[in-house]
Amino acid sequence: MRILILLAALLLSPSLFAQITVHIKPNNQSYLSYEPIHAQVSITNQSGRPLTLRNTGNDSWIEFVVKNQSGRVVGQITPAAYAGTTIPTGETIRSSFLLNNHYDLALPGNYSVYAVARTPDQNGRQGTRSNQGYFTVNRGVPSWKAKVGVPGVAGDEREYRLIDFNNGNSPQLYIQVEDVKFSRMLACYSMGRNLSFRQALKSIDRENNLHVLFMTTPELYCYTVINTAGETVKRLYHKTAGSTKPYLHTHDDGSIVVANSILYDPEKEAEEQKKFHKLSEVPGGFEQ
């Protein structure tokens, strides 16, 4: 009888109902050290009513447990506080969370992560756990690097690094910008898909901005300009003009342009394509 009463109490406990399901998936399989590591979390509301997930007291409605390749939990470097959300009945929401904000993931190695989501009636020792997601952090080997000063700031120095890296989806060309004086990474991100059989062209202008031109498809070249803060200040796409390839040209005043190319305009390209007749539109009796 006592066992039946205990089972009944457990069954009636609202925190034990399968109110939500949680799934996590890192955006990529592999990352470079200091690259933003995003995890996509999907939460499905199975409670039979609209459900609001929110922080209560000192308990966050969602938290992450990250482990290194030794199975040790990676401690938080800053407390996490995420805005709440409301999930309509029977629906699924998907949100992206940046793990680097709260966990030091710069060391190379294999990592795992899972999420724990809590409904308002659950405390910090309860919650619904997701599956485990896996990702790898790599240091990467620069194919090119250069140090420059910061205009207007005496003694400050930056190092630009280009790294060819496959993040598990496709080969990418990455940029890293480090504050040399304070040994601090300012930026690390992919500039785009890179066909590395043609070496990327790079040049530094009079403001010490880095200009990079690389082949992203057999027909398109990506032209990107990065400043000393690690920000992308320009990104344009160019097509080959004639039989020679685009290149970076430096003017006498120190400015840099892409030469021997046609600026790619996708809208204009689409309009040009409409001018050509499809094979199905060829009049009957005419053979090609």
Rank of each mutant, 00 (worst) to 15 (best):
S183L: 06
S183W: 08
S183K: 15
R184Y: 08
M185L: 11
A187I: 01
A187M: 08
Y189T: 07
Y189C: 04
S190F: 06
S190A: 15
M191P: 04
G192S: 03
R193V: 08
R193H: 07
N194M: 01
N194K: 00
L195M: 15
S196I: 00
F197D: 10
Q199E: 12
Q199W: 05
K202G: 09
S203K: 14
S203H: 07
S203G: 05
S203I: 10
S203W: 02
I204S: 01
I204A: 03
I204L: 03
R206C: 03
R206M: 07
N208L: 12
N208A: 11
N209W: 12
L210E: 07
L210Y: 11
V212A: 11
V212G: 02
L213S: 05
M215H: 03
T216A: 10
T216P: 05
T217M: 09
T217A: 06
T217N: 07
P218Q: 10
E219T: 15
E219F: 14
Y221R: 13
Y221N: 14
C222Q: 07
Y223D: 11
Y223H: 14
Y223R: 04
V225N: 08
I226W: 06
N227C: 12
N227D: 15
N227P: 08
N227K: 10
T228K: 04
G230N: 05
E231R: 13
E231Y: 05
K234P: 01
R235M: 15
R235K: 12
R235V: 07
R235F: 05
L236R: 10
L236K: 04
L236F: 02
L236D: 07
Y237H: 12
Y237T: 08
H238Y: 15
H238S: 01
K239P: 00
A241H: 08
G242P: 00
G242L: 02
T244K: 06
T244V: 06
T244G: 00
P246Q: 00
P246S: 02
Y247M: 04
Y247E: 01
T250A: 10
T250K: 14
D252E: 13
S255F: 04
S255D: 14
I256K: 00
I256C: 04
I256N: 02
I256V: 15
V257R: 12
A259P: 08
A259M: 08
N260T: 14
N260G: 12
S261V: 13
I262L: 14
L263E: 09
Y264D: 10
Y264E: 09
D265H: 10
P266K: 11
P266W: 10
P266R: 09
K268L: 12
K268E: 11
E269K: 10
E269P: 00
E269H: 13
A270H: 00
E272Q: 05
Q273R: 15
Q273G: 06
Q273S: 13
